[in-house]
Amino acid sequence: MSLYLRQVATLFWKDVLVELRSREILSSVGLFCLLLLLVFSFAFNPLEKDLRPVFPGILWTAFYFAGTLGIGRAFLPERAGEAFSGLLLAPVDRGAIFISKFLSTFTFMLLAEIVLTPVFFALTRTPFTASPGAFLLALLVGTAGFASAGTFLSASLSALRAGELLLTVLLFPLLAPAVIGAVRLTEALLTGEAEMASLWFKALGAYDIIFLVVPWILFDHLTQEV
């Protein structure tokens, strides 16, 4: 295994260990996600209305809103005790720091989503008509771009005063294509429009790649601590 990959793996494992011990992100993100589901149910009333047409929107709104919470927390433990400065001083490529942080955020979000998706289907009484493999892939491509752009913004905003307040304001305009893509893709999968699904898979995949590569290139500029 090359040195770069080993650095990424070590940093990623560190985040996983911290999360395993504190369970801070997974529990708060998961709980908030469920609360959003509750709010949506009160707002739209699944007993009176057929929620199928708006279900993909409900699902992704909840995932993205809850995800913002997790992303906002991604760098907080690093700021305590100047751990982030230590990380930057370590002989590690800055890009590796970004990739590992992205991977851990992405993994936590995806885990929460996989656990919560059945609950969403059950509580909104939406029949699950997609193939599980394709749906999992949709969760994956829908989350990757979000996690990458979010991690990137959070890395720099966490250093600023009131930076967390800015996160959502800056994140969602950038994420507009991901939101549209994820919702449309889920819709296509649930209604069985294969052609539409493959178009949105490709579009989201391209978006994810751009939003992984550009932040990875620019991350160095963001972490020149003054």
Partner: peptide, 15 residues
């Protein structure tokens, strides 16, 4: 804050 300026520049590019 110079950090703000740099982040803004990055945002100006990504945007």
């Amino acid at each position: 804050d110079p950090r703000r300026a740099r982040l803004a520049a990055v945002l100006g590019i990504i945007g």
